[in-house]
Nucleic acid binder design. Structure first.
Length: 429
RNA sequence: GGAGAGGUGGCAGAGCGGUUGAAUGCACCGGUCUUGAAAACCGGCAUGGGUUUAUAGCCCAUCGAGGGUUCGAAUCCCUCCCUCUCCGCCA
């Protein structure tokens, strides 16, 4: 959500920010709606003020047993005029709100201009691509080959974009989640949380999924939605509250299922586990004071990278360009892991984590505020979220990177304890 | 799902048609006292918005949410949401 005062005070900067998002200028239109609304509100309030004053006098006159009929008539007159003005005011307020809630966040100055993922900027590459003296298989062949991944059964149960994992691969999900949670809580100070996976519309609106992206969500009943990421419940934990500066930063992590209708992705990544309607993710959320958010984004990205490093996976960090940065973010780093089995064994980088600084954008929507000192003003917090990591895609990476020519998988050492073995072998053997 | 009881400031808890944005206590902040601390005492202490050069004033709104009755609603009525107790069901 945008700050109407910013639009009022810096219309050109706002329109420039819209332009970076590929949107037409709106500052003038928004400011004009706002000006009309405030003028109307001022009139309305002075009427209400008169009404309140008259009512008090009526009370006093009546208590003395005097006649108040002329004042009662005056109030009646005000009451006759008010509804039309109130309706107008409400209409303007709604129009204004639709603009403020429907427009994407202002991009950080450092975000490169671009149209899509091809214009993202390489920040760093860590580790080296593994080499194989055979053509690497993708995770589908590997998983099905080991009898531990069943897309056909999942399709029968649920439809496209689901999977059934069996045996060691089912356990691998749990092992990865445990490694991630242990790392974030023990090494990086994140508090482990277990939030609801179903939230109401107000919560979805707070983080920016609603009102614009309802089609990407699953709705289980009126006003009940399945979360697409734990960012939603975790960040909204701070909604409608004022946090003491001494309690910052707030860092939380959670392992939850995530549900995405993938409305706009029909036909993309139809093979395998890359894009599923249901997947699990360990999410990190940080809530900090304004001046800390830039540093916190770097820190959070490093926390996600730490998981990849523990798993010995090669990856690169990309700074998303203007066209690829999400609605609520002002700046985003994507971490792309190397998947040697993709593209017929030639390999491909694929997003495995996305870490975003949303600035005050979500906080303003959900009224998440902070106070620096007793009696001081409130100000909006900055919120950040990042995957640490997406479990399904991490599993793909572990499988494709650890594969042997015979189709078995050598596991990274960090998982041996969690898995009780160093190798994935055919199911039931 | 059924029956009942409730939802008031950071917390506890009064108010139940009039000048109440809301008693009182606790917490918190400032001060007096004290070598220091505690205690005691004094004062302050909701949020959002409008107006304004103004963090000064003045004004509006908010006592779960939304409607209604009334000159006037935290207080009365309706709908919804949530919490608690009991019953039913259930992992």
């Amino acid at each position: 959500m945008h700050d109407i005062r910013f639009i009022r005070d810096f219309p050109d900067a706002f329109d420039e920010a819209l332009k970076r998002r590929g949107l037409a200028p709106l500052a003038e239109e928004i400011s004009s709606i706002d000006a009309k609304r405030r003028a109307l509100q001022t009139d309305l309030q002075s009427m209400q003020s008169r009404r309140n004053e008259a009512s008090k006098q009526i009370g006093m006159l009546k208590s003395k047993g005097e006649d108040a009929s002329s004042m009662i008539a005056e109030v009646a007159d005000i009451k006759a005029k008010a509804p039309e003005m109130e309706a107008q005011e409400a209409q303007l307020a709604e129009a204004l709100n639709n603009h403020l809630m429907g427009l994407p966040n202002i991009l950080d100055a450092s975000v490169p201009q671009g149209d899509d993922e091809d214009d993202n900027e390489l920040v760093r590459t860590v580790g080296d691509k593994p080499s194989y003296d055979f053509t690497p298989q993708d995770h589908v062949s590997l998983g099905e080959g080991l009898g531990q991944m069943d897309f056909a059964k999942a399709a029968k149960l649920s439809g496209a974009r689901f999977v059934v994992l069996k045996g060691q691969m089912a356990r691998l999900e749990r092992a990865l989640a445990a490694l991630m949670l242990d790392t974030h809580t023990q090494e990086f100070g994140y508090a482990e949380m277990l939030p609801p996976a179903i939230v109401n519309s107000a919560t979805m609106t707070g983080t920016g999924q609603l009102p614009k992206f309802a089609d990407d969500l699953y709705r289980v009943e009126e006003d009940k939605w399945l979360i697409p990421t734990a960012e939603v419940p975790l960040t909204n934990l701070l909604a409608d509250s004022i946090t003491d500066a001494a309690d910052l930063p707030v860092r939380m992590t959670a392992y939850t299922p995530c549900f995405r209708a993938e409305a706009g992705s029909a036909g993309r990544d139809t093979r395998g586990m890359i894009r599923q309607h249901q997947f699990s993710k360990v999410e990190m959320v940080s809530v900090v004071a304004a001046e800390e958010s830039a540093n916190e984004l770097e820190r959070m990205t490093n926390c996600a990278e730490a998981i990849l490093q523990k798993l010995g996976l090669h990856y690169r960090v990309m700074k998303l360009c203007s066209g690829d940065t999400g609605f609520s973010a002002q700046q985003t780093y994507d971490i792309e892991v190397w998947l040697p089995g993709q593209d017929e064994g030639r390999g491909q980088y694929r997003e495995i984590s996305s870490c975003s600084n949303c600035g005050p954008f979500q906080a303003r929507r959900m009224k998440a505020r902070m106070r620096r000192e007793a009696g001081g003003d409130t100000e909006f917090l900055h919120t950040l979220n990042g995957s640490g990591l997406a479990i399904g895609r991490t599993m793909i990476a572990v499988l494709e990177n650890g594969q042997q020519e015979d189709g078995t998988i050598l596991l990274p050492e960090a998982l041996h304890g969690y898995m009780g073995t160093d190798k994935l072998v055919p199911f039931n053997s």
